[in-house]
Write a protein that binds this DNA or RNA. Sequence first.
RNA 1: UCCGAUGUAGCUCAAGUGGUUAGAGUACUCGCCUGAUACGCGAGUGGUUAGUGGUUCGAGUCCACUCAUCGGGACCA
Length: 1096
Amino acid sequence: MYREFKQLNLPEIDKTILEFWEREQVFEKSVDQRDAANSYVFYEGPPSANGKPGIHHVMARTIKDLFCRFHAMKGQRVERKGGWDTHGLPIELSVEKELGITKEDIGKSITVDEYNQKCKETVMRYKDMWDDITRKMGYWVDLENPYITYTNEYIESVWWLLSQLYQKGLLYKGFTIQPYSPAAGTGLSSHELNMPGAYKEITDVSAIAQFKIKGTENEYFLAWTTTPWTLPSNTAVALGKNITYVKVKAFNRYTKALTYVILAKDRLGAYFTEAKADLTPEEVKPGNKPIPYIEIVAEMKGSELEGTEYEQLLPYVTPNKPAFRALLGDFVSTEDGTGIVHIAPTFGADDFKVAQKYDIPPLMVEDEYGNPMPLVDKKGQFVKEVSDFAGRYVKDYGQEEERSVDSDIVIKLKTENKLFHSERYLHSYPHCWRTDRPVLYYPLDSWFVRASSMKDRMFELNQTINWQPKSTGEGRFGKWLENLQDWNLSRSRYWGVPLPIWRTEDGEQELCISSMEQLQQEIDKANAALGLQQTLPKDLHRPYIDGVVLVSDDGQEMKRELDLIDVWFDSGSMPYAQWHYPFENKDKFEQKFPADFIAEGVDQTRGWFYTLHAIATMVFDSVAFKNVVSNGLVQDKHGRKMSKRLGNAVEPFETLATYGADATRWYMMSNSDPWENLKFDIEGIGEVQRKFFGTLYNTYSFFALYANIDGFKYEQTDVPLGDRQEIDRWIISQLNSLIEEVDAAYAEYDVTTATRKVMNFVNDHLSNWYVRLCRRRFWKGEYTADKIAAYQTLYQCLNTVSKLMAPVAPFFADWLYGNLNTATQKESNISVHLADFPKADSSAIDKKLEQRMNYAQRISSLVLSIRKAEKIRVRQPLQRALLPILDASFQEQVEEVKDLILAEVNIKDLEYITDTSGIVTKKIKPNFRTLGRRLGKQMKNAVQIINGLGQEDINQIEQSNQYTLSINGDTYDLTLEDFEIITEDIPGWQVANDGALTVALDVNISEDLEAEGMARDLVNRIQNIRKDKDFEVTDKIEVLVEQHSGVESAIEQFGSYIKDETLAVELTSSAELTEGEVVELPGDIKLHIKVQKANL
RNA sequence: UCCGAUGUAGCUCAAGUGGUUAGAGUACUCGCCUGAUACGCGAGUGGUUAGUGGUUCGAGUCCACUCAUCGGGACCA
């Protein structure tokens, strides 16, 4: 028996199937039954269990899951090792928040050990929740043996990778300008800077300084700055290559000295009013912002000024290399300032970069250990070399002072004739989110991966990767690789993979550790040389690893560089570290590298996708993955980002519990391509549930109901296709076409097409055409070969659909498959996920058959459309429809499906018009596709000529299949192919068109037809009454109809038909009937009908 | 501000290499309850394809600019 159900309950199915999977270990079997030699390698991008799973995780994991399931069904072995990302700043921050501490407390009020212990506990906080969502959404991944990034084994593999980079000379120490909070004494990540409220509007003193050009008496560059405290560190000025500059003769407003100042022509108006040849110094007052000038003495492009040397503005410290020159920078604009930018390489990222390019040194002094440091120390105070301002804070760090150091610097410049102008300036400036104090851009020591040196190779290898969508790979990722910067690995944090580099105090000698074994050897060596008792730490994290002192070849102590590495390196290491490669599982790794498939959100483009690619390229000269699907964001239904703050985040557990995993998954995959941002609308899931799963469920229920009655268990051999009805062969043909299309779509990682095709097949073809038209075959008559053929056909469709949908809707598919196969035992698999993906039988595909059924559907639709327009109900039979034939095969084709059409639209006959001349009005159009290429510019004239052709000409063309077109003396021989001819109208008939198809309907209703229509309505009313009275389907009845002129002939002519349809043993009319039900019939007829069970 | 993506019916999405009635579903209107399904079926209304300009015989499709939304980077003088 096939199981029958009261109604569709997807969440219930989820539960049942989930239990079944676990009980039968279906996932394990689906992997184990496939040969390792035919592997499909998938890498799981590790989530962090530190946060709760969201609906976007369901999205991303649906994609991962479905392609793995698909390939498993295609016969490949698809192992899916899970993983957890356990390190990183977000975890540290959440721990600090919880403990109510800041970074500064670590090592003081809490030991590093305790702190890291706390991180380790926190990191798996929501693991249960993640495991739960993984189960409930049907994501098959091995959670028993996941890789965990904080384990010693994982770290050891990461170390090995780092040492590989180190040996290739790809790891170096340098400094970069990074956001740094002197108040907190820590560098800030860009994500901390992007926290809401980080940028505040503050007022600073801005200054336009005069940089005196070397070898001149009184010529100056004017450069603007909002941070006068960086002026002592100035070593260059930057100009725009294509910006036009002017040299202006003017008086200094403070000193009244005659000067020639250079600034961008576009900025002239911001600082100067008008030219006055006889200007006197007294006319220029300090308070006036724009001031008059004497004249413009020269004009030049920025490029002409490149290399111009000037005198140091504030000579506290002398640089060790030539400096103080004009450079060209593409970041220079004329939107504000002077079009000349002051460059302090120690305090600006752009400054640093452009200075490096021109080999201009930063201004540095030596600290107490002799190491170089900038003119401002890590507390934000000027160093002693900046004599007048030594010890002063450069920004507001809570100190009390009369004037800010910026103001004092401005005053100093003013008195030395080095200031052009100064004013207060309101701008937004980043602040430390913990201390609320201003951030400085500050040079910090960091370890870098020389990724830029490998960018060409990365770019090349990227071209072999199949990106879905393509644009992300070529555009976003490709562009990123083209402009690749070195990878800053350093994080001055506690909970992460420690950098395995030990250095002597002078930094002259260093050692990069590549394994525990090597570390042990080095420890032994150090113990011997230094007389220590060190042992290998049990935990490779800080603080234990920090305590390890090693020894250099010449006997010096070596200490570990205190940095941790960027967590992104952790996750990019997973192809190797998940197997503890190269220390274990060498063969395993070799089998599983690179991945066939990975998938994550687009936000991972510069994250995981990049780190995987970079490490694989640099260490193995290989791609890390061959196919990648990057999915878009999940937004709310209005296209806004989901966030806790807006309260529009969708709760995944709730969604799964309400709609079931399959409807949710199916909705997300079918609604739009996964790489588009998904406007997540919960009603869309409801729609999928109703329209797709509901329909498929009903189709199954229908099948089960009658198959159980007839005892169909698919015991008979298949009825040969040739012996089955046309409509059976049609749906089988459609089904096989569907298999081909869906298989291809999945293979190309195009799940949206796959799901839409399946949906379309189930709704339009299977349910609404095949089953609807075949209903009678299932319930009427004996258990004949034809009936068996119908069952076999429908069974095959359902069974195949279950396999086609299985990757996306694994629960329902397995439920459906199970219901079918437990009854028939036709396939030996206990689960659809152990089955092979269906193979299309191309011999069963009959495109001509598909075409003629398509005609049948469209012709039916046209007839119904005319009925509707003419307000003639379908129950009213009509005599005939006319069909102008399109081409030779058309009539033949339609003839095959004629009976279907007649029954479907309730007409008696279908007639073809072959000789259409004089009967129909035709319309002719040029075929733009064929003619456009040939005619080119003549097309316009041709259109005019062709559209002007009359009925005669059209007939002529149709018969002779040739036409000579002449335009302006040129002639072209055209054939029927070059035209589109459609029947527009049949005078005197009601006509409808659909593309080239035209249908005319005879809407005359003869008395006979009217009576037959009435008879059908009577049947309908009587059946309704039967149903209202809850009669059994098999009950015989007696019918008494009130006498009425409108139904007389119906009862007379079609009495036996009515009796037959309603199982009436008697049908009589009576003039005086006042009992029974009042029914309304066409023609405003109201009368009584009395129905009662027959006494037999 | 720079880079990228997107913009088609009220909403969610389609429209081979440019080819002439821009299609589905949903919503809405109207009509249909007889043995699978009203969680259904049928028919209809609904578009200046964001805007402007260009290339072309022909543009939703190609190009330029503008606007809007989203994402990423920069926020520095």
